[in-house]
Design a protein around this nucleic acid. Structure first.
Length: 894
RNA sequence: GCACGCCUAGCUCAGUUGGUUAGAGCACCUCAUUUACACUGAGGGGGUCAGGGGUUCGAAUCCCUUGGCGUGCACCA
């Protein structure tokens, strides 16, 4: 029975939630339930959104990418698994909750609530966001297996985190060390190097001497830290200062004790920069600390504390001052004592905490680190080595274990980052996170691993044990994501089946944070790669190219857009016109365009379903009866082949554009109109539509599934087989060789040409016209297709003549080798016709000239592939033919 | 400072290993008013592919170079 009850426009709202529920209840999101023999698995571990907030457009983009991929693979017959999850986002979440609590009136939430009290607040906050996030992921249509839902901070993941820590601790890859780290005063916690955001800041660089008898002037942007200087470094080849190397000078700059400044040699000092000498402050500069480690006897004097104020060691005059107050005071002192030489305004960048926002202090502290350079016991390789080989020669030099990065330029960026990588500081002084599973014995001083409460010290039996207060960097747990979500450390069936994962997509901004850490963890723990392919995507930006941000207030809520336009429209607008690695601008007009297209798909289906009696599934390509049938089936084969090829390369934009063209231009604009004329195409219409729905499903799952219901196939579209390419020929070449397609294209051209003549001569669209055509070889074709031409070009009378006699009172144009004369009832506007023809003559002349030149060039004829040369010859012949006709038309005009 | 990316129609962007007279969407202009779809249809205008040089029979595409925009890393005495 034809369907008569379909609404005129597709209304996504109201339908989508029900469809999602149906998918979910089918159980097919879980690959173990998928029908048929499926030997190959395809796994994606969803980048877990942070529970700091709710999902933004960037998440919608990422969900569109991964869901389109996983749906494609599911339809291709793979065991397709998309593991969903969320991230507790340690520092970020605590920072967020603390700032909210402060808004509510608390002054120091950590002090006022205590560890358990604050954690409870954060847990509530996180749980709340988790459930919002999950419902948002569902809104986006993401087909993930909810039975495997994970959270970086749940019991299973915490178990994995502790086990990794234990192994690294035993291998002495994790160590506790006294180092200069990045300290956020505001957050009262460390930050890793990657968690810094550098911003430009204007500052003053002061040049001065420590004392009148000190021989070398130095410069600094941080005068207050000079109270903790213990050395001056010069280049060993610097003739000016060579003689001083090794000498010690005692200077009194007002610190608690006079400073003993040793002149040391360091090849890293640039002779030509500034004074050529560097004041060394081991306690408050990572670089200076490195110098100190090479020359420990120079000493280290911390003059800034965790509270961001000057310490006792800075001296009575300075103790308790903020760094800025101390800076002013010290500069004033230099001036008063005539030690000040000069100052200069410069712009330099300072590191700020990406979560707390304050400029970080470099402070020396005991922290936990992962040693990236140490050889792993029993492996002869460092973590850095493992991280490198996974993207170059393959893990353990196994070429089958190479991670492919798309686009591959990010491989270079990643390798460069590894070269500069220092030991990873993993301890944080926030409370929200995996507590470091290490216990200290207050009696014997031993340090031991323990993931649960330790009753007594293994070494001395003391019960005075306490656990480390710190928590782990959130990326420590994220690094384990691909395997911790599959049940590790148990050797689960899931791990065997679904790991390494197949595909991963992420924004380039977390390449180092996440991709690098996943590679580090997985190669170390699993002795394997975490995934085979990484698709790096760009950032979404506003229409003016600015970042979406809260402070700019230009953010768009994906759920609002979904409510307005539907999920499919949002998904399509995010994928069409977006290429790997590049940023894209997002604005509502794009979604509107996509929504219009989705409505087009709906109406194509509506037309077919309403006009067909026997609605059924057509599995086998039906027989083509007319030229148009052959053409549409041929084009469907082409677009199917293209889609398969492009999807296998994750070219989402290209795929969607090709499908879009076929759907709107070929199928809707031409074939459906012809179907109305020729009739008897029920099976072909159903066949093409059903194939289209399958091809489109990964991109726009809701509308396609909704339409699919009308076929009563008893099966969800989601698990239908994706149409396979029938031929493996080059589809483009095939197309060109195919005369039938050429014939149909000519018919299209004839129709367009007549339409164009009509429009240019202001003939009312409803008015029927008389047309005469002149052709040598296409008479049979035109006669065969005359009904189509008549109807689509609004022609009431079509005659074919052979002589070169132009019909009276007509205007003419050329389509291929066919000359078309449109008979006018009124007088021909000769001057307008002349201008039009002359323009075409001159264009054709230029074209002929270009082609002739090309073909006259013997080098071209000799060197270019014969196929190309033949093509050019053919083009020239056609152009000549056209020219003759055009000239005749010009003559006839007079 | 080093590296990477981008510059194609008014706007936003595609353009696969170099080979049709360089494409799409939006916007614009003309026409159509109930058609499966106005979330529509038909027709049209609009580009020295940032500038310069090179390689090649042939360059938007490869190389060099200049400029503009952006990003990463390093330096930041």
């Amino acid at each position: 029975m034809p369907k008569t009850d379909l609404p005129k426009a597709y209304e996504a709202k109201g339908l989508e939630d029900a469809i999602y529920k149906q998918w979910e209840e089918s159980g097919f999101f879980n690959p173990d339930n998928l029908p048929g023999e499926r030997s190959e698995s395809f796994t994606i571990a969803m980048p877990p959104p942070n529970v700091t907030g709710i999902l933004h457009l960037g998440h919608a983009f990422e969900n569109s990418l991964m869901d389109t991929e996983i749906r494609y693979q599911r339809m291709k017959g793979k065991k397709a698994l998309l593991v969903p999850g969320t991230d507790h986002a340690a520092v970020a979440t605590q920072a967020r909750v603390e700032s909210e609590l402060k808004k509510q009136g608390l002054v120091n939430p950590r002090q006022e609530l205590g560890r358990e009290g604050l954690l409870e607040k954060i847990r509530d906050f996180a749980d709340n966001h988790k459930s919002i996030i999950i419902s948002q992921i569902k809104k986006m249509g993401t087909s993930c297996d909810w039975s495997r839902l994970a959270y970086t901070f749940d019991d299973a993941r915490s178990k994995a985190v502790n086990e990794i820590f234990r192994r690294m601790f035993n291998d002495e890859l994790i160590y506790r060390g006294y180092r200069v780290i990045n300290w956020s005063v505001k957050g009262q916690s460390t930050c890793s190097d990657d968690e810094l955001e550098y911003i430009d800041q204007k500052t003053t660089v002061y040049t001065f001497k420590y004392s009148h008898d000190f021989p070398i002037a130095i410069a600094t942007t941080r005068p207050e830290t000079k109270l903790g200087d213990t050395a001056v470094a010069v280049n060993p080849d610097d003739e000016r200062y060579k003689g001083y190397i090794g000498q010690k000078f005692t200077v009194d700059v007002g610190a608690q004790k006079p400073l003993i400044i040793t002149v040391i040699a360091d090849a890293g000092v640039d002779i030509n920069y500034g004074t050529g000498a560097v004041g060394v402050t081991p306690a408050h500069s990572a670089i200076d600390f490195e110098m100190y480690q090479k020359n420990k006897d120079i000493g280290i004097i911390p003059v800034i504390g965790k509270d961001g104020r000057m310490t006792e060691d800075a001296g009575q005059d300075y103790q308790g001052l903020t760094v800025l107050e101390a800076r002013e005071k010290f500069v004033a002192w230099l001036k008063a004592n005539s030690l000040y030489i000069s100052e200069e305004e410069i712009t330099h960048n300072v590191g700020t905490s990406d979560r707390f926002g304050d400029v970080v202090e470099a402070l020396p502290m005991e922290q936990w680190f992962i040693d990236v350079n140490k050889k792993i016991p029993g492996r002869e390789k460092s973590l850095k080595d493992l991280m490198r080989e996974a993207v170059t020669v393959g893990h353990q030099a196994n070429p089958e274990k190479i991670i492919e990065i798309t686009p591959d330029r990010f491989k270079t960026i990643y390798l460069h980052w590894i070269d500069n990588l220092r030991d990873w500081c993993i301890s944080r002084q926030v409370w929200w996170g995996h507590r470091i599973p290490v216990w200290y014995c207050d009696d014997c001083g031993s340090i031991s691993y323990g993931d649960t409460k330790q009753e007594k010290c293994e070494k001395c039996n003391s019960q005075n044990l306490r656990q480390d207060e710190d928590t782990l960097d959130t990326w420590f747990s994220s690094g384990a994501w691909t395997f911790s979500t599959l049940g590790w450390p148990e050797e689960t069936a899931d791990l065997k089946k679904y790991h390494p994962t197949t595909w991963m997509q992420m924004g380039y901004e977390i390449l180092f944070f996440w991709m690098a850490r996943m590679i580090l963890m997985t190669t170390y723990v699993r002795n394997d790669i975490p995934f085979r392919q990484v698709y790096i995507h760009g950032m979404l930006r506003a229409k003016d190219g600015q970042k979406f941000s809260k402070s700019l207030g230009n953010g768009l809520d994906p759920i609002e857009i979904i409510n307005k336009y539907g999920t499919d429209a949002l998904r399509l607008s995010l994928l069409k016109g977006t290429t790997a690695g590049n940023d894209m601008r997002f604005y509502e007009e794009k979604v509107e365009g996509a929504r219009n297209f989705i409505n087009k798909v709906w109406n194509i289906s509506r037309f077919i379903l309403q006009s067909i009696e026997d609605i059924k599934i057509i599995d086998v390509e039906p027989e083509a009866k007319t030229l148009a049938d052959k053409w549409i089936l041929n084009n469907l084969r082409s677009v199917t082949a293209l889609t398969n090829q492009a999807m296998d390369k994750a070219e989402f934009s290209y795929t969607s554009e090709k499908l879009y063209e076929f759907t709107w231009n070929d199928f809707a604009d031409w074939y459906l109109e012809i179907a109305k004329i020729e009739g008897g195409k029920d099976e072909i219409l159903l066949y093409v539509l059903q194939n289209l729905l399958k091809l489109w499903h990964p991109f726009i799952p809701f509308v396609t599934e909704e339409i699919w219901k009308n076929f009563d196939s008893g099966k969800l579209l989601m698990i239908e087989n994706y149409p396979e390419s029938i031929s493996d020929h080059d589809t483009n070449a095939n197309k060109k060789e195919n005369e039938m397609v050429v014939d149909f294209e000519l018919i299209k051209e004839i129709i367009s040409t007549i339409r164009n003549l009509r429009a240019e001569n202001k003939i009312e669209p409803v008015k029927l016209v008389k047309v005469v055509m002149m052709t040598k070889s296409k008479e049979a074709l035109i006669n065969e297709q005359v009904a189509i031409i008549k109807k689509l070009a609004r022609v009431e009378d079509l005659q074919i003549i052979e002589n070169n006699q132009k019909p009276e009172n007509s205007i003419s144009a050329i389509a291929g080798e066919v000359q078309i004369f449109l008979l006018l009832t009124g007088l021909v506007d000769v001057s307008a016709e002349k201008i039009r023809l002359e323009k075409e003559v001159s264009e054709t002349e230029q074209y002929i000239e270009m082609l002739s030149k090309k073909l006259a060039n013997t080098e071209f004829v000799q060197n270019a592939p014969p196929k190309v040369v033949d093509l050019e010859k053919e083009k020239l012949a056609k152009a000549h033919e056209k020219m003759i006709k055009l000239k005749q038309q010009v003559v006839d005009l007079k």
